[in-house]
Simulated assay, not measured.
Amino acid sequence: MTELGELGLSSYEEKVYRTLLVTGAVTAADLSESSGVPKGRIYDVLNGLEARKLIRMQSNNPKQYVAVQPEIVVDRLLAERTYELKQEWNRYRKRAETVRSNLLPTPPAESSFWLGSLGSEEMSTALQQHMRTAEDFVHAIVGTPYENTTWETLQIEVGAFFDGANADLTVDLLLSEKVVTVLPDRFPRLINGQSADVTIRTIPEVVLSFDVIDRVETTIDIPHPVAGDDRIGVLGIKDSHVVKEFERYFQHLWATADPFLE
């Protein structure tokens, strides 16, 4: 493909435009002969180029065409390609959102409960999607069952959590002291490298792990009834009264917590 072809000109359009640069003003019939574009196609090609403002008609008796200056043509072709690529990008982004939604675990219609163990791929995807709904803040309490697992497992959920967080988000994390013992020495560097504004505090014990997003939704980790180092799933609640109560509980614990690593 030629350079003009990459910018959006067909082979006939390129032949006509390049010929006009050499001949100057010329009729369609003469241009067909000079460029090698068949007479049955020449008017379609000329009309297309003229509509895109890459050539113009100079006189009407007889009708003659001239090429627009090359630097202007290149800028216009580049603008066309930029617009087309932007449209294509938007189409792929919408398709990706659809695929992402289809990959999420689907809750039963009568509830908002998702089965999913710690570190599982489907729940990591769900956690990223959950975090993408946050616009202003996330308040999260992390204890059981995270404090009983390994960093290798916990790291998967931490990564998914921050992968979904936007750069303008405020994140307040309240960790149990037992969770802190699971974290590696590099954990502070990992947190400092996040784009979101993250503050961490600790408390001796956490009875229940949950988060609150924008005072609109809370998700609660349901510990596994048999395996102490796992959960059976996550319960999502949007009832305003319930969310308000969990936010109130978070703020009560946050006020009495200690700064992390101070």
Rank of each mutant, 00 (worst) to 15 (best):
M1D: 07
L7K: 02
G8W: 03
S11R: 09
Y17W: 14
V22D: 06
A25D: 14
D30C: 07
S32F: 06
S34F: 11
S34P: 08
P38A: 04
R41Q: 12
Y43S: 11
L46N: 09
L49N: 08
A51I: 00
S59F: 11
N60E: 14
D75P: 01
R76K: 15
L78N: 02
R81A: 04
N90E: 10
R93L: 09
G119M: 02
M123A: 02
R132I: 08
A134F: 08
D136T: 07
G143A: 11
T144Q: 06
E152G: 05
E157T: 01
D163C: 01
G164T: 03
A167I: 04
D168Y: 03
L169K: 08
T170C: 10
V171P: 14
L173M: 11
T181L: 05
L183G: 13
F187E: 10
P188F: 00
L190D: 01
S195D: 10
I200M: 09
I203P: 06
L208D: 07
L208K: 11
E217N: 00
E217S: 07
T219F: 14
D230S: 10
K238A: 11
D239W: 02
E245K: 03
E245D: 13
Y249L: 04
L253N: 14
A257T: 04
A257E: 03
E262K: 07
